[in-house]
Design a protein around this nucleic acid. Sequence first.
DNA 1: CACTCGCGTGGATACGTTTTCAAGCATCTC
DNA 2: GAGATGCTTGAAAACGTATCCACGCGAGTG
Lengths: 352, 352
Amino acid sequence: MAKRATIKDVAEAAGVGVATVSRVLSGGSASAAARERVLAAAAQLDYRPSALGRNLRQRRTGGMGLLVPDLTDTFYGQLAEGVLACARSVGEPVVLGSTGGDPEQEADLIGMLLEQSVDRLIAVPSGDAETWAPAIRAGMIVIFADRIPGQASADDTRPSAVGDLMALDGLPPAPPARPLDVPAVVADDRAGIRTAVRYLRGLGHKRIAFLGGPGHEGRAHAFRAAVGAPVDEELIVFGTGSRDSAYAAASGLFQSRPDLSAVVAGGNVLGEAAVLAARELDLRVPKDVSLVMYDDVPWAELCSPPLTVIAQPGRDMGYRAAELVLRAGTRRARSVVLPTELIIRGSCGPRR
Amino acid sequence: MAKRATIKDVAEAAGVGVATVSRVLSGGSASAAARERVLAAAAQLDYRPSALGRNLRQRRTGGMGLLVPDLTDTFYGQLAEGVLACARSVGEPVVLGSTGGDPEQEADLIGMLLEQSVDRLIAVPSGDAETWAPAIRAGMIVIFADRIPGQASADDTRPSAVGDLMALDGLPPAPPARPLDVPAVVADDRAGIRTAVRYLRGLGHKRIAFLGGPGHEGRAHAFRAAVGAPVDEELIVFGTGSRDSAYAAASGLFQSRPDLSAVVAGGNVLGEAAVLAARELDLRVPKDVSLVMYDDVPWAELCSPPLTVIAQPGRDMGYRAAELVLRAGTRRARSVVLPTELIIRGSCGPRR
DNA sequence: CACTCGCGTGGATACGTTTTCAAGCATCTC
DNA sequence: GAGATGCTTGAAAACGTATCCACGCGAGTG
């Protein structure tokens, strides 16, 4: 329709140069008289500076990217809301991508963001260090949220397959330290899981299972640490991300290990699957099996019995991550660990 | 870090002009020899065309905007997933905003998108015609999803308060027809609600209530039409969007009208509130009160009893909307109405 | 053979902004 | 009073791309 007014139009209308207009609108110094005339002209023309021109000039896009595995998972919805709230408060855009938990799609989306010159990114990572190398190399400011990639065990020094791939262009091989030095905003999984396991132990449970999904390796590790010495690896099972696969994993777990009396679900999708599978197999919660689920989602209270959960502050997590990614550059971002809380409802009971 | 290669670098490396590079990469005509050399040079330099340059040149941003009220609402999560899936398939970015159901925030976000030169937008609108006027005026291609703004009743000719505000700049007042001519992708609310009401009627229910949220005016209207002649307006109540307000509305409804025996919730947040409120008041579902909820969300099955729902295809809705908004310009987009399905589970029973 | 036609090509321009730079002017200092 | 100093100002240059246009060349046509 009516093409938008440009800075040139404003300058002309105000009888000043474009530089002055830019300065006034960007908060630079200018005489009161000039400022007033520019402001008046801008208002009268309904002028809005084009982000395109500015971005091109500054060689970067404002705002930030956000990559999550699945918006259908309420927890990621909460996280996204947090990010959006922070972005909105500073008037910056957020470009969103859903990876489906697939490293390949994640890599594609990273490529897309690179093409858009989005240089700040908050991600719930699905891929490993190799997936993230291009983003890091391009100088993107990345903040991980909710989890850290490929960190199967946080404290063992596993062989770094990453050093090799950096050895292109005659660069010296990267120092063999940790493969990715990316700040992260995560929940205190270790404490959360430990509290849950202790709680279940206190109820008399001996055979406690862990039901995880992709990206829950850290939580599984925390679970191993919490149950202590003889860990029965058969009691630790993983789904691949889809609801179907989560259900299959839960159902398989219940059927193959009838001796288990409690399960810790590593996420709300897994918890959902556990409830469904238990019901299907005529296992009563909490009579036959106790259940504690990661993530406090609104519907946890609707189940009967209401679900005992390890609550992690999804919205805060997103908000903090957004703050970090916006502040980065000014200050070197430091990782943040958010507290979890065991909310006891009705899905855990004494061992039968 | 290492600044990205530009089209100029590629041209130089390939020994051709930048115009040729642009043509090759944009699918224009070029000789086989030139094409090959350009492609080789581009690959070798790891060249990615900058969206910034392109966008500025073409005076528009690729991709699309997406505005939803609340990503914590699982239905909007599904819708967003659909949009993202379509966008990903064509490699285009999606910039997301969450309005919180607030017209003011919606207007702010529209302004932000305008500033970004995002000219395609999918929105679950919260504001009215006045909120959307700036977007339309700027020539944005807008597609509404899930609902249509301010359409309290779809078929009455209410006085248009919109004509007046267009009468700026000496323009002739807009034709008094419908205030907004924006294509939409919505579910067949009328049929969905009608089916639900008939189902409840068949179970013997006479006093059926409707529990709505912001944007559910259309569904409320469909509800009125479905229950027929003497509609008891006291049985139609609205929350304002937050979970608390939904709970308050549900609780108030149950307490003020102990004679009601069934309620239709206009969305999953409202359904959640109804379940909670009923439990708090010691009303058994479905013994004391029957409940059917709009939206089929995964946790509907987890409730006990599992919730009978009016399913609407959230993901499809998003995907279709994204297709429409991408195709628009080529073809004049036409609105789409998607079917709903009554999924009978266990939350409805015969009138006590 | 001359002329036209079509195609491949590259130089130049424009998109809207920020930022640099030098110039203009008034005030201050010695 | 002359020089220095500070502030305001506008012209111009970049940012990376797509597209217009003019040019050259080979083939086809009269």
